[in-house]
Amino acid sequence: MCMKQVPETTEVKIDQAQNRVDTGGLTRIINPYDTYALEEAIRIKENSGATVTVVSMGPDEVDQSLREALAMGADEAVRLSDPAFEGSDPLATAYILARGIEKLGDYDLIICGRQAMDGSSGNVGPGVAEELGLPQVTFVRKIEELKEGYIRLQRMTDDGYEVLEGPLPMLITVVKEINEPRLASLKGLMKAKRVTIPVWGLSDLGADPSRVGPSGSPTVVAKVAPPPPRSGGEIIEGTPEEQVKTLVAKLKAQKVL
């Protein structure tokens, strides 16, 4: 299961002089979409006796989120970290995660959240699938059946859903509808505190230095800016009948009705 640690809020400051988003001082949490992926992995473990390993890329403070994942019920956690990984775009990140998963060895199913709350690209999951040469199903809302070498699932589409089947190993990305994540227990958190989380760097992964960090990232973020401001408009007064008539007149005047 792939996890990302993100700032707890999307109300971030923009440092325009440095042309970057300032997330300093914000509490960091497990990406909310990843909690659904984690919950689904733990449910599969409870039903089948599988083991759940959580992989994340990032600095020391990511250990705290990995411990939370262990406290929820994951068996193992690995952190991928190296100064060379800094500045990785989604493609380089997918490459690094894929090398980490490859090093872990045997896997049947890789579960990712549909996207991260901060970067919101949704590119890393399918990128990992491609790097590992696995089939993928995105936006999964339900696993209908899972057995040796086989999975059948429902995928959310723009106007409904699809039922798909395919072989394992496979990578899936999941949407919120799939489950309701549990909270980590206090006992679990205490226990997870004592676990040593392995940290793998560039050489541990045997990764190609030209495919990580800025040199492995085809995209650059040239500029970050706040969206155009939106201010409160007009409060329509009057009796309910008058309010409604005024509103409809205004909407008609703007030719939107």
Binding site: T10, E11, V12, I14, V21, M117, D118, G119, S120, P218, T219, V220, V221, A222, K223, V224, A225, P226, P227
Partner: peptide, 19 residues
Amino acid sequence: VAVRPMYGGNVLATVETPE
């Protein structure tokens, strides 16, 4: 040159692919 929202629409990022 692409403009895309990040951080739930609180940031608009300009993304380029130079090469």
